[in-house]
Design a protein around this nucleic acid. Structure first.
Lengths: 248, 248
DNA sequence: CTATTAATGGTAAATTATACCATAAAAATA
DNA sequence: TATTTTTATGGTATAATTTACCATTAATAG
């Protein structure tokens, strides 16, 4: 068999055994529960082989005529209803042997996983509860052993989360639409570590940037002076694109 | 047909038409010619269908038993001999229709491209000249229309280069092993823009960080006081991991 | 009513970035 | 050869920013 393949040099136009792939899309869906200050990731318990009864990242296999991102959206829409969604491609995992279905009897079919990084608002996210769908939010630091190489994918997604939090306004995709400055600060602390900045300096820094609008509404949560609810002003943020928001 | 697929929910375990993929790996290989101050990318002229005679990113299709990174290394090794190589995965392009070989008569086979981002040293990089291999360095700003969606992939790689240059020591993977501070400065200028910093301040900033070792050797290039050759000290760099090197 | 807790606004010191200059050492020029 | 031009290098003063820390306000808890 001769391949006029996209990218082979002449040395490869001889008989070469190309791999055949099924391509899956796996979503690392993060959220935060501001009330209990927990960083969460959405997991699904598998009811099918392989890795039956293991928890895994929600994913699907790509269908004919479907783009990768469409597949990612489809899985998300099957599991969760949201108003606000941030989605971007994460990384592609394709080492041979990462999926047990790559057995010799399946004629060398490989399973590739294109992972996606998603952020949703915990309060707005409504999990779709079909009887046989086993979905749950897990605290990132309490995630069990997952199916396939999904722990590695999650770790990769977590690193992306930490990096983006410094330079992008993604905090406002996981926080509720209206949040206190303390909510924001706690999010940065749980993701970036306890000692990345003083609360007072964090406040003045972000307020001075000018893309946080005070709604005027005050909320009181237990003891202490009530806090203002703020919301993110996309338009006012524009000039800060690609500039770091905080320093660690 | 019923699929016990990795990631399907029960609604998908019915008859669903999954796509079958060939997976290609395409490399965006950057380098710099310090002598003429040119940012370069390695291109290959296709001698096969589709897009015959078009320039393209060097790539290959993934073989059985081969990992994505192995495929990226293999293509690179077929085209170029290097001592030093930086390689990381870039992005995965898989929209239906991106490859003309996805014709209806090929039973819905899709072509996915996992792109890789590579940096080599121009002086050390020896292009492998087989009679039928048409390889050339192109200035990034003079790249013609490429095969497939390779212009988009190159654009993506160029964005990655700009971002990484601020935060990672990747400059030292494209510069010669020993370079002048002006070489370094010119590289930052051509990639990040002319007015990102004053040369004098750039010098003192990078020297103060302490991971540039003066070799003591002086070079004179035309008029002017001769400059010191420096080299990058990996060990001394360690504490600066994840800190920005320059400001734009 | 008092103590405690959290939110907010602010200041002074330390650090860093920026603009700019002076000198050194080579080549180019007259 | 003397002078000018060019580039490398080392600096300084000013502006800007970050950091550490404090005072006040406004709520709840006891």
């Amino acid at each position: 068999m001769k391949f006029n393949s996209e990218t082979e040099t002449e040395s490869d136009t001889q008989t070469v055994n190309l791999a055949n792939f099924k391509v899956g899309v796996d979503n690392v869906i993060f959220s935060v529960d501001t009330q209990y200050n927990r960083l969460l990731v959405l997991l699904r318990k598998r009811k099918e082989q392989p890795h039956e009864n293991r928890w895994s990242l929600p994913g699907t296999l790509v269908r004919q005529g479907e783009s990768l991102q469409e597949a990612a959206y489809r899985t998300l829409a099957e599991k969760i209803r949201v108003n606000n969604l941030y989605l971007e491609q994460l990384y592609t995992f394709g080492d041979p042997g990462r999926d047990p279905r790559e057995a010799p009897e399946s004629f060398g079919v490989r399973y590739l996983s294109v992972s996606y990084f998603a952020l949703v608002r915990y309060e707005e996210a409504e999990l779709i509860a079909k009887p046989s769908v086993n979905l749950a939010w897990y605290q990132v630091k309490e995630v069990p052993q997952l199916a396939f190489d999904h722990n590695q994918i999650l770790e990769y997604g977590y690193r992306r989360l930490r990096n983006k939090l410094e330079y992008s306004p993604i905090a406002f995709d996981v926080l509720p639409e209206r949040f206190t400055l303390n909510d924001l600060y706690q999010l940065y602390c749980t993701v970036l570590g306890e000692n990345f900045s003083d609360y007072s300096n964090f406040r003045s820094r972000l307020l001075k940037l000018g893309f946080l609008s005070d709604t005027g509404v005050k909320v009181s949560r237990g003891a202490g002076r009530p806090a203002s609810l703020y919301c993110f002003d996309k338009v006012a943020f524009m000039p800060f694109k690609d500039k770091p928001l905080v320093f660690i």
